[in-house]
Structures are given as structure tokens and as C-alpha cells.
Design a protein around this nucleic acid. Structure first.
Lengths: 233, 233
DNA sequence: ACTTTGCGTATTTTCGAAAATATGTCTCAT
DNA sequence: ATGAGACATATTTTCGAAAATACGCAAAGT
């Protein structure tokens, strides 16, 4: 073979388009594809080995999630990062996550408690295993995501959960961005444990206050450490 | 020409795909395309005159908005309507709309006040002109949408506004569904005026209570009158 | 009778070429 | 020098055919 063109093969989703969306989402969230980077079809075609229309479908999906922006007739690019966007995102996340948390605590059954406890356990184990900069560890990120997902998983609100997931991705991109510059990872272990205890203890007010403050603090840290790479809001 | 196939032409959007998404959205919201109806490509191709891939892109857009559901490898269909979904939707709308309302009232400037007042004025004029069942009037629906959009337009929250718009469409589909069975349209004129007055008067608590109750009441009415066509939650 | 297997049809999914649109460059008139 | 117009190139957008996959029905096996 003379070219490096890949033949596309599914790793995740059931259709190729959703599979590519998944991979693209990952590259954007981890900032392998940088904010504002223009997503030319020829280039994407080369790295993903799919045709124009399949790529287009994947990009459409990511536009809906706010990770890609489309300028009609002028192509797609990775969504910009700005302080304004970070603030907007943070506000939306707190509003929705607090609501989901409260209702999850109201409705959560035994299985929910188990999901919360076990996902926290896994997170702690990973932190013990790699105490240094676990925040840039892929395994930690997955566990972190799963813990937060478990907390709200009993809310019984598909609509808000879907929005929440997409906002979580957008926020994770900002966290990854700031991780490049942050001297040391903040110790979130205590916060996570307190969150779990408030949730399992059915102390809704406290859990909501904790999650709001958790999101806000993280956002503030991102704003501080990532200000170098973030365009002026 | 032997077939009735249409040649696609843009009426709205800049690209054909977004244009078709717009038209499809309208047909779904107005229930010309019925809940659960399967969206076969051949049929769509005939009525919209676009190719497979263009239609696919439009459908992808609507899936993200929750008006269409995709069963991978088994095509697309109009999203089902259920009582459960209506409740979920209503809850999400109240949460988000109340937040947007409060911040719009905080931040709204002169232009915002003008938008609110003039959009209400237009709505009232239409109601005067067609006092009978204005709720099934296209013009009224557009004005109604614009009034509610105006109220929250100063919130400065692109993320939540985008979610709000998509939820509004989903809710409008339920309203249209119940309008078929509702004996007489509820008189919303008073509620709308009170909403405007509370907003312009910068009475945030009252405006938030009014909008929450407005959404909840509408949803309750939909549930009552549409129970015949809504699948059991 | 009831499930399983295989095959033809219907439908979706993916592809690469062709059309449409934007961008950049060069020329020419002022 | 500067700006407008025209051509050439780069890029996106749309198309219909081809490949992949699901579905229905008939035949065979238990």
C-alpha cells in the first residue's frame, strides 16, 4: 500500500458514523484536536478512512453536542474555548446536576447505592495506584465519569440526563486543557467521598450543595490555569 | 416526468440538509407525521426529493433534538409520545425556563423590554382577529413561540437557550396532539399578560412562579385531553 | 406442532464521483 | 498604489449506485 489511508473499521458503535463520532469526540475532548482547528474533509478522510457523507453525519452529531461548530458552506471546526463559554457551561451544569442529584437521592434504590459506592471505590483504588497526576490518566477519567454518572443515575430523567452527558464532555475538554498547565492536581478525593456519603445518607440538601461547589470549584481552577490558552471571553 | 418526485429546493436553511430538517421538524411537530411512524428513506426521498445521505443528515439532526429516534440498522421513526416522556419533558422545561427567566429579568435591557411587549402585542392582536381556536392557527403558534422566546432572550445563556428551544418543539408537538381533542382552547391571554407584567416589572419571583405554573398547567391539560392518543407511560 | 435454517427481498448504510460554493491570485483600469 | 473583475483552485455539499444488513417466508428437521 502506498498511502497511509486507513480502512475504517468499527471499534465501538454499531454504525460506522456513530463509531467515528465516538472517536472524534474523544480526540476533541482530550484536545488532540485543538480548539478552533478546522476539520477538513480530506484530512478526516485520511485519518478515519470514511467517506464524505459518513464523516458529515458524525460531525452533525458533534455539532448537536456543542463540541464542533458548523459554518455553513465553509466547513466544520472544533468548537472554540472561551471564558464566556466556560461560565455558561458551568452555570448550566450546576443547574441540571443539582436537580438530577436531588431526585436521584429521592428515588435511588439499593442498586443505585451499590453503583455509587462501587464506582467511588474503583476511583479511589486508581488514585492509590497512581497518586501522581492521576487527572491525566485515562483510566481515572473513565472512573471519575462513572462515579458522577452513578450519583445521578436514579433520577429517572432521560431528557436531562442526555443533556448532562453532553455538558460533561464539554466540561471535560476544559479540564483537560487546564491539566496541561496545572502544577499539581487538586485533591478531589475528599470531595468525592463526602459526596458519596451525603448521597447514600439521603442528605439531599448537603449533596446538592457539595456537587454545586464541586463543579464551581473545578471550573474556577480551570479558568485560573487555562487562561493562557483560552481566548478572551 | 412520470413520477411525482420533487426536485428539492431550499426554502429556509442555507444547506439542503438543514432545510429538510426544518421541514421535517415542522411536519413532526404538527403531527402530519404521526408519532411512531417509520421514516423510510424511499418515502422521504419521494416527498422531499433529496438523496439518501442528505436525508440521513437531516434525520441525525432531529434525533439530537429528540423528535426522531434511530434504531441502528433498522431505520428511523418519529419519536413516540408517552405520558412518561411528557412528564420528563415538563420537568426539564420548568427547571430550565425558570432559570432563564430569572436571569433574563436580571439582565434584560431596554431592547429586551421592547421585544417582550411587542411580541405580546402581536400575540393579542392575532387572538382578537381569530378568537375561535386560535391555538391551531399557524400564525398564532409562531407568535406564541416568539413571545416565550422573547421573555428568556436576555438570559445570556446560549447553552440553556439551545436546550430550551429543542424542548419547546417537543412540547409543542404534545400541544398539537391534544388540540385535536380539546373541546375549547384554554384562555391563555390573561396568563401571558401577567407574565409580561411581572417580567417588565422586574418581579422575578412572581414571573418564575407564573412561567412554572403556565408550563405545568399546559402539560396537565395536554395529559388530560391527549390521553387517548398517548401510549401508556 | 414447533423451532431452526437458508434464501430472496426490502431497507439501511457507505462509498466515491459530480455539482455547487467559497477562496485566492492575477490582471487591468483608474 | 488600489480596487474591481475574472479566472483557477480548494473545499464543501449533494447525488445515485453499490455494499451491508435486517426481515419475511418457505422448507427441513426435531
Amino acid at each position: 500500500m502506498t498511502t497511509t489511508a486507513l480502512k475504517a473499521r468499527k471499534e465501538f458503535g454499531k454504525t460506522l458514523a456513530s463509531d467515528i463520532a465516538h472517536r472524534l469526540r474523544n480526540e476533541i475532548v482530550t484536545c488532540q484536536l485543538k480548539p478552533n482547528e478546522s476539520l477538513k474533509f480530506d484530512a478526516l478522510r485520511l485519518s478515519f478512512g470514511a467517506s464524505f457523507t459518513t464523516l458529515r453525519e458524525a460531525l452533525t452529531l458533534l455539532v448537536a453536542e456543542g463540541l464542533v461548530v458548523a459554518e455553513e458552506q465553509r466547513g466544520y471546526k472544533v468548537a472554540p474555548v472561551t471564558l464566556e463559554d466556560l461560565h455558561d457551561l458551568t452555570h448550566a451544569r450546576i443547574l441540571i446536576e443539582v436537580d438530577l442529584m436531588r431526585r436521584s437521592i429521592e428515588k435511588g434504590d439499593d442498586d443505585w447505592e451499590i453503583r455509587v459506592i462501587s464506582s467511588l471505590h474503583r476511583l479511589v483504588r486508581i488514585e492509590e495506584r497512581a497518586p501522581e497526576d492521576y487527572a491525566s490518566n485515562t483510566e481515572w477519567k473513565a472512573a471519575h465519569r462513572q462515579f458522577h454518572e452513578a450519583l445521578v443515575s436514579a433520577s429517572g430523567s432521560p431528557t436531562l440526563l442526555a443533556v448532562r452527558n453532553s455538558l460533561f464532555d464539554r466540561a471535560e475538554r476544559y479540564r483537560n486543557l487546564s491539566a496541561i498547565f496545572r502544577p499539581h492536581p487538586r485533591d478531589k478525593a475528599g470531595e468525592h467521598r463526602a459526596l458519596m456519603q451525603a448521597a447514600i445518607g439521603r442528605n439531599a440538601d448537603q449533596a446538592c450543595a457539595l456537587i454545586a461547589s464541586h463543579i464551581q470549584t473545578t471550573s474556577n481552577n480551570v479558568a485560573r490555569y487555562a487562561s493562557g490558552v483560552i481566548s478572551a471571553g
